[in-house]
Design a protein around this nucleic acid. Structure first.
Lengths: 131, 131
DNA sequence: TTTGTTGCAAACCTTTTGCAGTCAT
DNA sequence: ATGACTGCAAAAGGTTTGCAACAAA
């Protein structure tokens, strides 16, 4: 297996991701990292995001619309997607690990873990819609 | 708003979907419906799948890998994805609607509903791996 | 006749990949 | 020197869309 080698590009990607709570898409990461590395390519961004996700330093979030999103927070947590503005927001709630066992009782096989995505409206959008 | 008009192609798509538990991708639907309608186009399949999903007659399931999958079963239920064979399998478990309220306590906004995807190994793959 | 639907093809968007050159070790 | 990493560009999915012909109402 390949030994990891230092790269400024990868460092910049990690740094940008660590500094935002916006769960950016690969393209958004690309746009921002490009300010520091104007010649970085989108391919490099994807390669590094996938690499970091593989070794567990970041998380990849699959959403129904648009592309995947990335999160520097790796401890398990749920997300809310605001159906009004499309933002993906962290949910400050303990994941319900116990439901894996619950699910296993209803499933012919083994359940390892789960992901959940909540759909709702964030405060900002609720305000806008009342105005 | 547009009034729906009958179409044999749409009927065939609904029928095929109703007759399988495999949660096929659009392409798989295309392959099968093409046996009855050799000239049907993939575009038509997509248009109808999206239309049916929009009016709530079928469900679209977003998975991390490959394309979206479609399900004729519209009453809310969870799915298990077998990390070994990639199949998407129905989970015969009541959705935990109560966790929406739980989640709302931890979220600054309104929570409407949620989806969940469990990751595990189906019985068939567990057998294969022991052999 | 009106209008939704279809087949076809082109376009789109996100993501991956082959390659030659570069950089970290 | 070795092998990982990069930029570039091309390609590969998966999905949408414009258009003229067609079919349901």
């Amino acid at each position: 297996m390949a030994t990891l080698k230092y790269s400024r590009q990868r460092e910049a990607i990690k740094e940008f991701l660590a500094g935002t709570k916006e769960h950016p898409t690969a393209d958004t990461v690309y746009m921002h990292v490009r300010e520091e590395f104007p010649r970085i390519s989108l391919g490099t961004v994807y390669r590094n995001l996938n690499l970091l996700a593989d070794i567990g330093e970041i998380t990849k979030i699959t959403t129904p619309d648009g592309g995947d999103r990335f999160d520097a927070v790796t401890n398990p947590h749920y997300h809310v997607i605001c159906t009004s503005c499309g933002r993906v927001i962290d949910l400050e709630m303990e994941p319900l690990d116990s439901i894996d066992k619950l699910a296993e009782k209803c499933f012919d096989g083994y359940i390892d873990h789960h992901t959940a995505l909540f759909y709702g409206t964030c405060r900002d959008c609720m305000k806008k819609n009342t105005k």
